[in-house]
Simulated assay, not measured.
Amino acid sequence: MRKIIDAHIHFDLYNEQEQIQIIQHMKQDQIEGLITVSEHLESARKNLKLAQKFPNVFPAFGYHPEQKLPTDEELSQLWEFIDNNQEKMIAIGEVGLPYYQRKENQSLKIDGYVELLEQFITFAKKLQKPIILHAVYEDAPVTCSLLEKHSYQKAHFHWFKGDKKTVERMIENGYFISITPDVLYEQEIQQLVKIYPLEQMMVETDGPWPFEGPFEKEMTEPKMIHHAMKKIAEIKRIPVDSIYDTIYYQTKTFYELS
C-alpha cells in the first residue's frame, strides 16, 4: 500500500466511535487525508469542528442537492458561515443537482436548484476554491454549461456517471472525477475508468455510503480505496505504483494540500 487521500467522504455522518476508529487507522492504512463534504449548515459546522480536532481532515462547505431547497434565511446563514470560514475550508461542496430526488418525484422543479448551483459556482470562482459536484447522467451537461458560462475549470465530479458525449466534454474541459470502491463490480464505473484520463482522476469512498460485492455489510472506510486502486491499475494496464503516485500527486495539487 502507498499513500492516498479520500477525496470525498461525509465524515460528519459517522458516529463518534466510527470517526475515532477511522482516524486511528489512517496511518496504518496509508490514508493521508480526508476531504469531508457538507450537506447543509449544521453539517458544515460539524465538519469544521472535526477539522479543528483532527489535522488530516479537510472540510468543504456546501448544500447537498438531494433535499429540499434551503429557505432564504437558511441560505443567508450558510453564505455567512462560508464567508467567515473561507480560509478554513478546502473547497465548496457538496453541491449540484437533484437527479435521484427527481427520479422519485418527477414533478420536482429543477430551476431553483440550477440557480443555487450557479451561485455556488460563482462563489467558488470568487474564492478560487475547488467545487465538489453531485451531477450525474442528464444533470451533468447542465452543470458543464454553468461551469463553461463562468469559465471555471476547477471542478470535481464525484462518483460520476454519464453518457459518452458528456464524458468527452468533461475531459476536454479538464474536470476531475473520483472513483469509488464499486469499480470492483460495476461495469459502468469500469468503463469510465477505461475512458477517463488518469491525470484527471482521484479516488473516494463517499462514506458512510455502503457498498456491495466484497464490501457487503462492511462499514465503509477509507482503506477500501486500496482495492479500487488495484482495479484501476488492472483496467488501465498501468503498474499500480504509478497509479498511486499519479492520483496522490493530483489530489494534493488539486486541493492545494501542503
Score class of each variant (00 low, 15 high):
203 V>P: 01
169 R>W: 15
128 Q>P: 00
228 A>D: 04
109 K>Q: 14
110 I>C: 01
202 M>C: 07
187 Q>M: 13
141 P>D: 07
145 S>E: 15
140 A>S: 15
134 H>G: 02
187 Q>P: 08
169 R>V: 09
229 M>C: 09
177 I>Q: 01
124 A>T: 02
123 F>R: 14
190 Q>D: 06
198 L>F: 07
128 Q>E: 14
157 F>E: 01
195 I>R: 10
163 D>T: 06
219 M>P: 05
163 D>F: 07
187 Q>V: 12
163 D>V: 06
172 E>H: 15
157 F>N: 04
149 K>D: 04
225 I>K: 00
229 M>G: 02
109 K>L: 14
184 L>C: 08
165 K>G: 07
123 F>Q: 13
160 F>Q: 05
219 M>F: 09
179 I>L: 06
126 K>T: 13
181 P>W: 08
198 L>N: 06
187 Q>N: 13
191 Q>A: 11
144 C>R: 02
153 Q>R: 15
208 P>A: 05
110 I>N: 03
123 F>S: 13
111 D>F: 11
236 K>R: 11
151 S>R: 14
124 A>S: 12
139 D>K: 10
179 I>M: 10
196 Y>A: 06
198 L>R: 04
200 Q>H: 10
132 I>V: 11
121 I>T: 00
197 P>M: 07
212 E>Q: 14
204 E>Y: 04
124 A>Y: 00
131 I>F: 03
145 S>P: 03
216 E>L: 15
214 P>H: 09
140 A>K: 02
179 I>Q: 03
212 E>H: 14
230 K>S: 12
111 D>E: 15
230 K>P: 06
221 E>M: 10
193 V>P: 01
205 T>V: 01
163 D>E: 13
160 F>E: 04
217 K>S: 12
121 I>A: 01
161 K>D: 13
109 K>A: 14
150 H>Y: 09
185 Y>K: 09
190 Q>N: 04
115 E>L: 13
230 K>M: 15
221 E>I: 11
228 A>N: 08
130 P>Q: 04
173 N>T: 07
112 G>Y: 08
223 K>E: 10
218 E>C: 11
138 E>K: 12
144 C>W: 02
191 Q>R: 08
128 Q>M: 12
137 Y>M: 12
234 E>Y: 13
132 I>Q: 01
199 E>Y: 06
131 I>M: 07
125 K>L: 02
157 F>W: 07
207 G>P: 01
217 K>W: 05
132 I>S: 00
159 W>T: 07
234 E>K: 12
174 G>M: 00
217 K>M: 08
160 F>I: 02
207 G>Y: 04
211 F>I: 07
191 Q>S: 09
131 I>K: 00
195 I>S: 12
211 F>L: 13
113 Y>E: 05
111 D>A: 13
141 P>C: 08
191 Q>G: 03
208 P>V: 04
167 V>S: 07
212 E>G: 14
194 K>I: 10
117 L>F: 12
121 I>R: 01
168 E>Y: 09
124 A>W: 00
210 P>I: 05
147 L>Q: 01
222 P>Q: 07
